[in-house]
């Protein structure tokens, strides 16, 4: 069954760390914001980069031990998920602005 990537990652964080639901979702939101991304329309490859390069530091700030391991685990779990289609009406602005250059 297709899933929402943000919900999926936040639930995994909640399960594998001492963070409660609110803190897990909030920390993930902060990591996405620092990466210039939004929870809606998030793509797997984007989430993987956030899990590798941004989220470990955010989790460490929250006192989570073994943050890199947790993030690697969530990233590995992404291989087995079927991602929900984009929200109806949503578009990938980067893709549009890339096309507008004629490439």
């Amino acid at each position: 069954m297709p899933i929402d990537l943000f919900d999926f990652a936040a639930e995994r964080l909640e399960q594998h760390t001492s963070l409660d639901r609110l803190a897990a979702r909030g920390t993930l939101r902060l990591a996405l914001k620092a990466s210039g991304l939004s929870p809606t329309g998030l793509r797997v490859e984007q989430l993987r980069v956030v899990l590798e390069k941004v989220l470990p530091d955010e989790l460490e700030k929250c006192g989570v031990d073994g943050a890199r391991g947790v993030c690697s685990g969530v990233s590995a779990a992404l291989a087995n998920v079927s991602v929900a289609d984009q929200t109806p009406g949503s578009v990938d602005a980067d893709e549009i602005f890339r096309r507008l250059g004629g490439s």
Binding site: G36, L37, V54, F97, G101
Partner: peptide, 23 residues
């Protein structure tokens, strides 16, 4: 606003710098 977020994505290799500049 789009440029501000795109700059962050460029640093993570998630956005083409030309696209960010176009914003």
């Amino acid at each position: 606003l789009a440029y501000r977020n795109a700059r962050k994505r460029v640093r993570l290799d998630l956005c083409d710098p030309i696209v960010a500049n176009r914003y």
